[in-house]
Design a protein around this nucleic acid. Sequence first.
DNA 1: GCTTCTCCCATTGACGCCCATTTGGTCCCA
DNA 2: TGGGACCAAATGGGCGTCAATGGGAGAAGC
Lengths: 146, 146
Amino acid sequence: MNRFLSHVTNRIDAKGRVSVPSAFRAVLSEAGVRELYCFQDFVFPAISVGGPELLDRFEKQMAAEDPFSDAANEMSLLVHGGGVYVKLDPEGRLIVTDFIRDFTGISNDVTFVGRGDHFQLWNPQAFTRAQAEAREGRKQRGLRSQ
Amino acid sequence: MNRFLSHVTNRIDAKGRVSVPSAFRAVLSEAGVRELYCFQDFVFPAISVGGPELLDRFEKQMAAEDPFSDAANEMSLLVHGGGVYVKLDPEGRLIVTDFIRDFTGISNDVTFVGRGDHFQLWNPQAFTRAQAEAREGRKQRGLRSQ
DNA sequence: GCTTCTCCCATTGACGCCCATTTGGTCCCA
DNA sequence: TGGGACCAAATGGGCGTCAATGGGAGAAGC
């Protein structure tokens, strides 16, 4: 397994810690990632987490926009201004800061969502809802796959 | 035999396990598949199961579009976030998680349905119903193709 | 000196692996 | 042709391991 896949919901303890799913930790250690970056997602109320190369990914995405557009400007503000380093404790937990809580609406539980080359932190209900909407959207656009 | 054909209904035990039909397991082992990829079907209330190449197919499809488009983003949410790797135990059983139950309405029994290059997990009643509806639909459209 | 952040250890519960039993079907032989 | 042995698949349960979680103690910062 070499990418972030599936989703898992874990509880935040009294100290504000939450375990990163072991499957995700395995991907990280396989990739040799020791330091994690977090960013606010552009579309969803979720925090994206990954290694240093995640920054490249976002910068590519910005480059795809007109560099002088409002969108690109906003993106830079979010990525460069809103990025945070996160460290894991020896048990593989991270601390859910107010930065994360405010943006995602996370309170007691966190849903870890694999996104291939990175993963995201979601409010469990918000994730369920977003997924249902995405599925609905695909249906209406015409059932291409399957 | 190299495709998934026919359907079988098996019981879920007290631990939430269910045997994958041996015919399906034979197809898998012939294809050298060790890890299964599952995702929520886009159309039916069923879980689709296949080898990792199922995921590859989706990822190619995403890569073909604008990888930063909303459509690709949505699709990743479904394919990556809604997909799971599943392992079989030494007896060839898989665990029916809440992830699967919630989406399919499966409770005590699972119907395994062959779909050629992959197979699906269904709630037995839902499968019977969907099959009847499909037959009905074909009748009305006039049985054009086989 | 007090709070906050790490690190360390204990507990619990889920899951994977192993072996036993049951069930249903097939083949062989009388 | 009927009965019985045999086999393979499905099912059921025990047990060890590991991940998730909870709490405590030491270290660092205010």
